[in-house]
């Protein structure tokens, strides 16, 4: 098994506005915020006024100020971590009506977790508008012990659960919001290729 071009690997076409949506929920990180600002400049302020932005990242006071200004007139909620951001998203979806449009911009783990939350609320993944910005880091599931390994930047990577050295495949599960990691030295234990920082 080697890394290859695999059809399950998601494609992120870039943000485009649904001007008809009566409410927009946008989840982004610091890098994704730039894509959101560009979206607003294309779509106009009436669109932005209908938007709630969940900005899930650790920000300095200056960054908070700058980004809130850049993303006005949308309501910007800042959440310190991605997990907090997703929890807040799920809370908003709980009571949301049809006519809502969901957007995600930033790292792949962020997009993946937004899409996964959407699925739990019967939002088709194709109706979620996504744009990848910033880090190439990945969320990986160890196929052997099922542990999720967050913020993976190298291939291979050591499983934080069972300790096996995993090849990160391009095979991706939306349900799990993760790429698949498979033991790389199963045939000859210890025969491991050099670690490459592929996903910085």
């Amino acid at each position: 098994m080697t890394v290859s071009t695999i059809k399950s690997r998601p494609i992120y076409p870039g943000l485009s506005p649904d001007l008809n949506a009566r409410r927009n929920i946008i989840v982004c990180d610091k890098a994704g915020a730039a894509a959101v600002a560009e979206l607003f400049s294309r779509a106009g302020s009436a669109f932005a006024e209908r938007a709630t932005i969940i900005l899930a990242d650790s920000l300095s006071a200056t960054e908070t100020q700058t980004l809130s200004r850049d993303l006005a007139p949308a309501a910007v909620e800042i959440q310190p971590t991605l997990a907090d951001g997703i929890a807040r998203l799920r809370q908003l979806l709980e009571t949301a009506p049809m006519g809502l449009r969901l957007y995600a911009a930033g790292s792949e783990p962020l997009i993946g977790l937004v899409v996964q939350a959407g699925l739990d609320f019967s939002i088709d993944h194709l109706s979620i508008r996504t744009e990848h910005r910033g880090s190439l880091k990945r969320r990986v599931q160890c196929v052997h012990c099922k542990t999720f390994i967050e913020d993976v930047t190298t291939n291979p990577v050591k499983c934080t659960g069972c300790g096996l050295t995993l090849l990160v495949r391009d095979h991706y599960s939306r349900r799990l919001a993760a790429f698949q990691g498979v033991c790389i030295d199963a045939e000859v234990p210890g025969e491991v290729p050099p670690t490459e920082a592929l996903y910085l």
Binding site: D18, G99, L126
Partner: peptide
């Protein structure tokens, strides 16, 4: 026009 996604 009411913002329903095509998928629905």
């Amino acid at each position: 026009l009411l913002g329903w996604p095509d998928e629905n």
